[in-house]
Computed example of a mutant assay.
Amino acid sequence: MSEQISPGGDARSASGRRELAYAVLLCLAGAGLALWAVTRTWAVDTDVVGVPTPLADEGRTGTQLLPWLPALALVGLAGGGAVLATRGRLRQVLGGLLALLGLMIVGGGGYGLVAEIGDEVAQQWPAFTLLGGLLAAAGGLLTALRGRDWPAMGARYERRSRQSAPAAGPIRGAGTVEAWDALDRGEDPTER
């Protein structure tokens, strides 16, 4: 399949945007899946209580068993969004941290699969947590390896320093475009 060239750029920038989208989606989907799965019931303990009610089931979620796991998933969600806001070397470092975070989520899901945590264990929720961690780790690894060349947010989202703002002439009337431009530069249009 040949690479299409977009009107505003070349094939390489289109590929970079696509890779960026894949990495962000992998991180967000993986962390979201892990967060959802960790809130489900992983284990049920059956206790003998008394004669009228001989058995009582007490379910425990992944959050109750591993309280640090939902926090990691939330950090993964935030990190997936932060990939969009960073660039260059900082984006690669963030990708490495997201890959590590994903592997820690995999460890939590793996623990849920192999540990004897109750009388009846639901294997699907730790498995979904493990899968979510793998997806988040893959997105982080892709970001760490390829993120430096991906496009970044435009300069219009960055604040300009006061020294770089050009000197403007007097503002000719209230509500004019010049007044709004002065506000954008950080100047008070009423002081002129």
Rank of each mutant, 00 (worst) to 15 (best):
I105T: 14
W180T: 06
I105A: 13
V121G: 02
G30H: 06
Y157P: 00
A85W: 05
V38Y: 04
A56C: 07
R162M: 04
C27N: 09
A165F: 02
E19R: 15
L72A: 14
D149A: 15
E178A: 11
A14C: 02
L130K: 01
A21E: 04
A11D: 01
A138N: 07
G80W: 01
T190N: 08
G132K: 06
R146Y: 03
E178N: 02
T143W: 10
P52Y: 03
V114S: 12
V75E: 03
E116F: 00
W36Y: 11
A165R: 03
S6K: 08
G186V: 11
A122C: 04
V75T: 14
A136V: 10
A122Q: 09
L100S: 15
E178Q: 07
V49C: 04
R60L: 08
G107C: 10
Y22M: 10
P52L: 01
Y157Q: 00
R89F: 11
A23M: 05
D119I: 07
V24P: 12
V48D: 04
Q4H: 07
L74Y: 07
L20S: 11
R192K: 06
L65A: 13
A43D: 07
G88R: 14
A73Q: 09
E3K: 03
R185F: 04
W180H: 07
G147D: 14
G109Y: 12
T46E: 14
A82F: 04
S161R: 01
D45T: 05
L135H: 02
G16M: 02
R12N: 11
G96K: 06
L55G: 02
L141H: 06
Q124L: 07
V44H: 02
R40C: 04
L90A: 13
R146C: 13
G186W: 11
V93D: 13
A31S: 15
R192G: 12
P151L: 01
G154Q: 04
R87H: 10
A182W: 11
E3W: 05
G107A: 15
A71Y: 05
A174T: 04
Y157H: 05
A99M: 15
A85L: 12
E191D: 12
I105V: 15
R91E: 13
G102M: 13
G102I: 11
D10I: 09
G108T: 08
T53F: 13
L113Y: 06
G175H: 07
T39Y: 00
L55K: 00
T61A: 04
W68S: 12
L55S: 01
E158N: 02
L101D: 09
T143Q: 14
M104E: 12
E19C: 11
P54H: 05
G173R: 13
V48K: 00
S164K: 00
